[in-house]
Every structure is written in C-alpha cells, then in structure tokens.
Design a protein around this nucleic acid. Sequence first.
DNA 1: ACTGAGCGA
Length: 85
Amino acid sequence: MSLQIYAGNLSYGMADESLKTLFEKFGEVSSAKIIRHQDTGRSKGFGFVEMPNDEEAEKAIQGLDGSEVDGRNIRVNRARPKRNE
DNA sequence: ACTGAGCGA
C-alpha cells in the first residue's frame, strides 16, 4: 500500500511540509513528518515520509539520499517498521 | 538546547 521512508541528517529547521515537498518531486506523497521531542517540540533532525507508489519511492530514495538540503546532505532510506506493520 | 548521531507510538 505504501512505502515508508526514513529521512535523516535533516536541518533542525526543516518542516513537515518541506520534507513532503522534497519527495513530491519524485512522486506522490501521502504523508511526511518530522520527528520532534515531546517536551521542547523541536526537531530531532530526522523524519519519515510515506509514498504509495513503490517505484516512485525508490526513485525518491535514490534521488534524495545524499542530496543537499538546507546546506546538509540528507540521508534517505527505507524506514524500518516502527512497531508493527 | 544553543546541537549533529539518530529509524517514529
């Protein structure tokens, strides 16, 4: 149904929408979110993106992994199951 | 947290 993608080494200023926009260059994005601390609410520097189309997702991974975003080379890969999926 | 390796409930 969807492929979940891990995006790390993001700038702390990266917003969910910005992350989504990045992946939308390669295809449809159903959701994108930055993981942040509960207390402070600030970014942890990584996030997750969900793409319905597998081939687009892999293209996005290849296309975005190592690419420079906001001055940093981001890390993109398939996400591990967070708990059970 | 003003930072910097990280895979989230």
